[in-house]
Design a protein around this nucleic acid. Structure first.
Lengths: 146, 146
DNA sequence: TACTATTCCTATCGATTCGGTATGAATTAT
DNA sequence: ATAATTCATACCGAATCGATAGGAATAGTA
């Protein structure tokens, strides 16, 4: 599994839009500033997120983006898989590991399958309503660092 | 986390050497044939595995490789981390995620930390004695496919 | 000693990906 | 008209990946 900057920006974008769900429309510029991403790069991410059915957009002046569905119905797994591809950790799992004629391949394949399942168990459970609530909560009770 | 071909070859190499532990010395050529890797590429992998303290080598005619330690003391995690680097799934975790001044970063970081721990829990538990035994067992009781 | 099989060392290479930049067209509120 | 926005597309430098290439060093053997 790999999580690229693009994937990271995508997650932060969805989280940002989740925090503004049911309120105003948000411009790519605003998002870019808040999540600290290059705006032109973020535009590409937003374009993909739109194709993926995660966000809706409105063009022209006072245009911007909103979530296409309730944050509770969007998981980290959905977003990251769409942007960065499958979460299986091994590149060659679809090639060299297809048939288990060789037992040596089999036992290693089993390990990676376990890893993949463990990863999925986490990222498919975390949704953006929960994440947004966590953010709101932690901003209410800030951590005082020295 | 990423597992490259190099990492995959490394794991298969250690597994192959585990299956020959306490018997003869094994040449890179033999390993290459058995795990189906380009020999010159495998040589580089073996060189790294030697630097990592996983294997010992003997040069010259009748040279080859043996495991540097008992297979039971080598885990998948040790090998893959040494060859392919840290298993944390997110590239920027060491950069943008260092200080948790921004709560939005925090909550996502927490997710990736959980994923990292789940991955580690698996790969740090699987050792090559167990894997070798699994291979021996499955070769004794072959699966009859149609 | 000459030969041979092996490990070891280092350079190179093509393809792909990554993260980003650049340019500008299309759309829409005012 | 103007300005602010989304949308589309092309490009780019750096790094990584998965090798390939050539040969030096070492050691057993006839």
């Amino acid at each position: 599994m790999k999580v690229t900057y693009k994937g990271d920006y995508a997650l932060k974008t969805i989280l940002d839009l989740s925090l503004h769900y049911d309120s105003d429309i948000v411009t790519s510029n605003d998002i870019a500033k808040r999540i600290d991403a290059p705006i032109k790069f973020l535009e590409q991410v937003l374009s993909e997120l739109k194709k993926g059915g995660f966000v809706l957009s409105k063009r022209g002046k006072v245009g911007g983006y909103i979530l296409a569905k309730n944050p509770a119905k969007i998981t980290v797994g959905q977003v990251i898989r769409f942007i960065d591809g499958p979460v299986e950790p091994i590149a060659c799992i679809n090639k060299g590991y297809t048939n288990c004629s060789d037992a040596s391949k089999c036992v290693l394949k089993k390990v990676w399958e376990q890893v993949g399942m463990a990863v999925s168990a986490i990222i498919d459970k975390v949704n953006f309503e929960d994440l947004a609530n966590e953010v709101r909560k932690s901003k209410q009770e800030p951590v005082y660092s020295i």
